[in-house]
Write a protein that binds this DNA or RNA. Sequence first.
DNA 1: ATACAGGTTTTGGTATGCAACATGGCGTGA
DNA 2: TCACGCCATGTTGCATACCAAAACCTGTAT
Lengths: 231, 231
Amino acid sequence: MREALTAAASRRVTRPAPLRQAVYDALTELIVNGSLKPGQHLVEAELAEHLGVSRQPVREALQRLQTAGWVDLRPAQGAFVHSPTEEEAAQLLGVRSVLEVYSAQLAAANAKSEDIEHLCELQSRGVDALAAGDVERLVAANTALHAYVTTLAANDVLAEMLSQVGQKVRWYYTPIAKPRGKEAWNEHAQLIKAIAKGDAVRAGEVMRKHTERTAEFYRKQLAVAAGANRG
Amino acid sequence: MREALTAAASRRVTRPAPLRQAVYDALTELIVNGSLKPGQHLVEAELAEHLGVSRQPVREALQRLQTAGWVDLRPAQGAFVHSPTEEEAAQLLGVRSVLEVYSAQLAAANAKSEDIEHLCELQSRGVDALAAGDVERLVAANTALHAYVTTLAANDVLAEMLSQVGQKVRWYYTPIAKPRGKEAWNEHAQLIKAIAKGDAVRAGEVMRKHTERTAEFYRKQLAVAAGANRG
DNA sequence: ATACAGGTTTTGGTATGCAACATGGCGTGA
DNA sequence: TCACGCCATGTTGCATACCAAAACCTGTAT
């Protein structure tokens, strides 16, 4: 009976989600989808009224948004939506690369055959979305695949970091998901193969190429956009 | 005149430190030095009274302490000082390793000759502390050296992550700083040489060995402690 | 011992007030 | 015209007070 209980409790009772968490989620959503523009001044009172809560949960959410890098909190002035610079995006993609490489290496060392099956399933889901030209599903599938690899890595500290970085990357990345798609999913296939073989070195290498190409692609896209802006 | 002003303003005016920051610092200090023991329940009201502030800044500090991993915030129950597990320490040291390796590689690519001088100065400071057997100065010098390498890497995103991870590592690591010291500072010397040559590959390799040996040393130390506890 | 009922503690959130600081506009004087 | 100082306004940072709901503790009856 003890065992049955602990097994059931592995998925704990659903506790009432703290309000600050809901506020946090709402604000990230508003930032990612562009409702709140970079540089915009976020006034606690306004947000509170708009979300139908008091200032306190808003404040607490803003604190976390700062440490996550979504807003800048200037003392005695308040919160401003963070303006990502090219420089910063490059740095972020660099860090993501080394973390993802590590993740892939660990995943290759740990993966069981049923894990491989799930990876393949996610892969085909992504390919479907690519064929359908559905950007939203494409990004979701991409996120899910990388997230599952991280799960296989079985390193909670790493997972935490990658989830934060990953969200930011998604922000930068969404606009280029489609043109980059075909190449990316070919590389995913190679990655899965390497993981299936338990070849950590190769998995890491494939992931490094994958993330570096993504970064490269992003840079090129920026250059094109800059050229267009200049005329 | 414009130039003179901007040069002077490179070090901005000192703004009054937010109280929540002071609370955050005070609590981390209390946790690191062991006044607050792992697992201990932190009651907002008590902390507030003890620190002579109201509950609000305490709550905000606790939020940040959670995201930094110093406390666990259980919904409707409050904050508990985080209990680091062996598993978690191992994971943390693994992640730190890949980040430090990346940091070393970038530093090797960027370092100027005056940077090398500063590195050597930090190195000799560490060696002095080692000779004097002063653990506190030793840990400080170690932190400073790694931090300066990270500065040379010129990647703010990376720096942010390493500073967080580094603080946790210091918590685990302080008790073994002295026995590990001699080897560690030999490895530091090799690292500086590689950075001076601008050899990113070698710098990364040296740093990988360095951090992995530190992790290894930590594991052994744990095993010894466990043996001692069993009798 | 076990289970239950009731009281206590603590959190999470609301509401409100206020001092300090930042900002922007306005008028005055050079 | 421009620079400076002054003042009105808005916002944050923190304090205080209060409350509902959840979790915890305890004593009692079984």
